[in-house]
Every structure is written in structure tokens, then in C-alpha cells.
Design a protein around this nucleic acid. Sequence first.
DNA 1: CATGAATGAGTATTCATTCAT
DNA 2: AATGAATGAATACTCATTCAT
Lengths: 206, 206, 206, 206
Amino acid sequence: MTRKPQQQRAKATVDAIVQAGFLCLAKHGIEGTTTRHIADEAGIGVGSLYEYFANKQEVMDAMYQMVVADVVSMIQPLTPRLVKMEIHEAVRTLLYEFRELLMRDDARYLKYASQAVNVAQRDNLEPINKILNDLVVQYVMHHPEVMRLRNLPVMSYIIINGGIFSVIRHLGESAPMLTFDQLAGGLADMAKHVMDGEMRKVDNEQ
Amino acid sequence: MTRKPQQQRAKATVDAIVQAGFLCLAKHGIEGTTTRHIADEAGIGVGSLYEYFANKQEVMDAMYQMVVADVVSMIQPLTPRLVKMEIHEAVRTLLYEFRELLMRDDARYLKYASQAVNVAQRDNLEPINKILNDLVVQYVMHHPEVMRLRNLPVMSYIIINGGIFSVIRHLGESAPMLTFDQLAGGLADMAKHVMDGEMRKVDNEQ
Amino acid sequence: MTRKPQQQRAKATVDAIVQAGFLCLAKHGIEGTTTRHIADEAGIGVGSLYEYFANKQEVMDAMYQMVVADVVSMIQPLTPRLVKMEIHEAVRTLLYEFRELLMRDDARYLKYASQAVNVAQRDNLEPINKILNDLVVQYVMHHPEVMRLRNLPVMSYIIINGGIFSVIRHLGESAPMLTFDQLAGGLADMAKHVMDGEMRKVDNEQ
Amino acid sequence: MTRKPQQQRAKATVDAIVQAGFLCLAKHGIEGTTTRHIADEAGIGVGSLYEYFANKQEVMDAMYQMVVADVVSMIQPLTPRLVKMEIHEAVRTLLYEFRELLMRDDARYLKYASQAVNVAQRDNLEPINKILNDLVVQYVMHHPEVMRLRNLPVMSYIIINGGIFSVIRHLGESAPMLTFDQLAGGLADMAKHVMDGEMRKVDNEQ
DNA sequence: CATGAATGAGTATTCATTCAT
DNA sequence: AATGAATGAATACTCATTCAT
């Protein structure tokens, strides 16, 4: 029977397990990670793991929640600053922060993301989508001229998804042909060009 | 010891196994796919599978080879036509063909791509990278004005990777908020904007 | 990952597995012995076997170690008495003790020895060789006249190896033409004759 | 259905299979030898193997028969010469011939003997026992004084079995401490000593 | 006669999960 | 609360044997 951790010690244990989960994933890959690995890495017995998580999947889920939460809490405090920036700088800033998050703690999250199966399937990327949408919305509110673009949702979708994947792929490359700065700059340029181009298109239509 | 299929019957068996591999992957997911599943689906005994493939991974590899080969042989004959098109139309055309390939046979390849772990890691996406590079190179040769862009490699990288992932993600969504046409159009627009924008930038620099 | 048995219960399990190993070898022969046989015979689940032994071979190795240890701890306490005996009696005594060990627990060790492949190859019969050499050395020290024999190493080799194999072979015969007493007496006589004969030879050479 | 080889070609095939059996045993060991290995080595298809042998065991049996036959046909023509020799020389000669047989064809028979499980059990070593008994009987007939020994059967048993095993063990040692010549000489000396000693005993008893 | 393709019962081994202490 | 011992269903893979061609 899973218990809600009520004491201080219990909370620490739960956390240790999730941390251990990331470490194991990085070490042994997703298929090579066993509950025993995780328990050992967390410095507890297997039995104890099952005191706090009903099964292995729940540990994975907790890891996922943590990734999502951390992405959200990276973007949230950043938003006020981002929305005031010009698009080019905003994109670059966000990407650099994103990279920092992915590389933190021995690239824990990058490795997680690279391993994570079914990326395409998960419909519960929602919180991240939501915060990104918020960001877009607020950005638009600070830059009223953008509001005229009809294509905004499509373009956001592409830039966001394409950007995320390009960065993950790039960071995982053993012999990258581009520097990260080139990539970030390129994505930022692209966003700028798209905005300018779309704007111009709207102007011409009228 | 793996045997090379010498008789007609044997060739058919090998093929049936790879086909069954795709089916099983779609049905049970990558972790849920067992050698017995594959053998059953192929209508053969487990032993027969091992007559032609040294282990499970080799079946997976054969599937991968087939995907790569099919992508290549989709793009190759298309190239002459694409290079003559204007960028916007070229991108849209390519994306529609790509979708057709992904959705073929009950979305066999789409499901494969969605499942494929470590997509980011695989450095042996090479044949596909190569054919896409060829396409870019030939496109440039037919559109000399593009040659002036310094940013070409970066932009190709982003559009290609971002585009592939956006499409896969979109096709896998159960409740997409965009139509495929919107997505393809968006990517095409984006490519156009980037080209125009970069061009303008180069012009201004001079 | 193999675990070291820490609790009392675990130690008993490890022992039960090794015991079961001998039983299975006797019942099904070396090729017919499966890990499941052993686990069943030990009254445990297969998984438990693998908690303490990395693989089947390790169980076999543990059995081997036990045989070696038991042979050694049969001879060791016997040595002081043997070295004081006359050669004929010493050989007979040792052989009878050896038989007792081989026949113990339903001839567990005899059956093991009969099955043991590559007996000839194993260079790690060492502990047994060592204790036997010790025995010879100590025997010589108590019987200084023997020291004159040049041939000692050769003769020991022959008597020891030939004796061991003759006894194993004899005990395994379904319809032996000799009694064990005849065999043991014969080996003892032989040792005596060899000693006397070699001694005489040395005398004549001088 | 197994067929008796009636044609010339068929006989050659049967022989090739048995030869291949020895080769495989030497290469892969007894547990690593598969019917496919044997068929491949013999240069035929698996199916063909089963045309001549009902199952794998029959191939092994044929190998065994061949070993036995070869041992017998080594000793048989040698017997007339051996019986005329003095005991010491007879033993040495026989052992050297035995070694030659064991080492022939890349130590094929030695490896077979080292691998052969259950050596001790097989009661059908008979043909070899018989020819050796014949040898002893004929030897006695040529050396009438030996007939007085009561212990003859026991001593033969020990010398023969002990001798065979000592030689096999010695030839298989990677770092032997004795030369073969020392071993053979030692066994010959031993036989001589035993005969002399027993003779003397009989003399004293009278 | 010859073959090699097909087979599937059988084997070693793993690992998430349970539970007695 | 914590643990580690026990478990057994599940999995990848092997190989003697059969049989259609």
C-alpha cells in the first residue's frame, strides 16, 4: 500500500528515489534500469521503494512530473523579462536557459529526453504547452503589432516543437557540425524572419 | 549461425519477419514486442526467426534499414522535380510525400518513428542526411541566388530537423489543433520567410 | 547481481542449492541437470538460485569447491596417523577413507567424480594435489630411508593418479570382478613392491 | 529411416561424418558440438546426416566404436612382439604406442578421451578389456614363471587402469612436471617391481 | 539420395513485485 | 517503517529432429 510521505524523512526518501531514477537512466538506459538499481542508487532497500511508489511506472511518472515542473519553473520567472525583449533576443535567451536546464546535473534531463520513448504520443506534455502558450500570449500582449498575424498558432507550433527537438538532437550529437550558438542564433533569426515576413504579407494583403 | 536465404521460400520468410516486426511494434510498442510475437505475426516458428536473424536487435536493425531505404527512395526520384520548384512549393510537396510515406500501411513507419528510442543519438541516420543534403545542394545549384546566404547550413539543419519532428509529432497527435495542411503550409511559409529575410539581410550588409 | 547471504535464512538456501546440485547430478547426469531441477530439488524458486549464484556454472563450481574441501579435510586430520604407518597399511587406510568419502550420502561424490568432465584438464585440482604432496613429504620425513629414492615424484604421480582413478572406476562398476578389499590390498602391495624394488635398485647401483 | 550405406559414396559420407565428429569435439567441446557443426564440418547438409544416423547419439556411438576399434587394432598386431619382451620393455613399448594413438590427428582421441563423460560408467569398454586380457594371457603363456602369481588379475587391473588414466591425464596437462618418458619408464619400473615383489612373496610363502 | 528450411519444446536467465521479519 | 529474501512469469535464444522439394 502506497503511503503519502508525511514526515520529513519520508520526503527525503521519495526525492532520493526520483534522483536515483535519473542517475540510473543516464547510466543504464531505459531498458537497463531496474528497480533494484534505483533502490541501490538511492541507498535504500527495494522494499522501501515500494513503500512510496506502487510500481516502477510510478517512479518514471514522478520523474516525468519533475521534468515538467522544472521546465515550467524555469520559464515562469523568466516570462516577465522575455516578453519585454525583442523576438530575436527572447528566443535566444529562452534557448540558452533551456540548454542550461537540459545539461544540469550531468545532462540528466537531456539523457532523459533522449531516452524518453513515445515523445510524440504523450498528450500530457500539457503543462509545458500551457506555459509556452502563456508565454506567447503575454508576448503578444506586449507587442501588439504581432496580433495582426493570422498564422500565429501555426508558427508557434513549428518554432516551439522544431526548436525543442533541434536543440535536444544537437546537444546529443557526438560530433556536431554546428555550435550551439549557431543553432540558437539560427532559431532566433528564423523566428524574426517569420515575424517580419508574415507581417509584410499581412501588409500586402490589405 | 545465421543463414543467408538461398531459396525462394526463405526470402519470403525473411520479408514476412520484417513486416511482422512493424506490425508488432505498432500493436505492442517497442518494449512489449517479443520475438514470439513477431514469429507468430509472421506465421512462423520462433526458431525460423533465428535462422535468419542472429537476435532480436537484428530484426530491429532490418526494420530500420527498410525505413531508411524507403525514405531515400521516396526522395531520390522526387529530387529533379523539387529542385525546379519555388521554395514554398518544394517544401510543401516534400512534406506531403513524407506524410504519405509515414501513413502508408496503417501508419507503420509513423508508429515506428514515434517509438524509436534514442532517435537523437543515432548517428547512422546518415543515408537520410546525405540524401537531404544532396537535395539542398542541388536545389542551390538550380537557384543560384540562394548561394549568397551564409547561414544555409544552419537553416537547413533547423528546417529539416524541426520539420521532421513537427510532422511526426503532429501526425501522432490524437486531437491535433492544426490540420496537416496548415502545418505543411506553415513550414513552407517559414522556409520562404527565412530565405527572403536572410536575402534581405545580406543585401543590407553590402 | 549476486548477493552475499547475510541472513541466516539465506545461508541455508545457499547450502540447499549446492546439496540439490549433487542430487540432480546423480539423478539426471550433468547434461540433464537444469537450473529448474536444482531449484525444485532445493525447494526454492528459480529466481532464488540466481540471487546467490550468477549462473549455473557457479553452482557447479561451488560443488567442486565443496568436493575439494571435503577431500582435503578428510586427509588433513588423517596425515599424522598415516605418516607413522608402514607404507602398506598407510595406503590401505587412505583408500578406505577415500572410499568412505566417495560413498557418503548415496555416493554423491562418486557420482560427481564419474560425471565430472575434463577431470584430466582441470589444473585447479591443486588443493588436493597440495595436500597429497604434503602427505608424501611428511611421510618421507618419518621414513628417512625412503629419501634415497630418486624416482619418488614419478612413483607418487603414478600411484596417486592411478590409484584415484582405479578406485573411482571400480566403485562405479555395476558388476565388479574384484572386491574393494582386493583392489585396496593390491594398490597397497604395489606401493610396497615399488618401494622395495626401488630401494634394492639403489642398493645395487652403489 | 536410417539406411545402411551400401554404395561406395555412402561409406565415404558416413566416415566423413564420424571424422567431423572428432574435429568438432576437439574444437567446441562436447557440449558445444551440434549436429549442424558436424554436418558443416563433414561438408554435407544436416538432413544427410540423419540419412545415416538415427540421431546425434548414434554419431557419438560411432565415434566411440572407432576409438575402440583403433585401440584394438593397435594392440592386436603388436601382441606377438610384446609377449616376447621382458615386462619392462613390453610396458614401455605399449605405452609409447598408446601415446602415438592418442596424439594422432591433432590429438583427436586424447581430446575425445578427456571429454568423454562417464568414462568410469561405460561397461562396454569390453572390447578393449578383452584385447588387454588376451595380451596378459598370452604374455603369461610366454612367461610361465608368472603363472605362479595369485594376484595377477588385481595387478593387471591396477596397472592397466592406472596406467591408462595416468597417461591421459599427463598428456592433457598444460605444464607437466614429468616428461612422458619418465612416466612411461615409471610405469614400466612399477610393473617390474610388482612382478618381482610378488614373485618373491610367493617364494617366501612356500 | 540430398538438402536446407522450418520447427517448438526446452534452457538459462531476469526482474518487478510481495511479504515475513 | 524498513528491508532483503523469495518468487515465478516472462523472455531471448538453441538445437535435435522432421519433411517437402
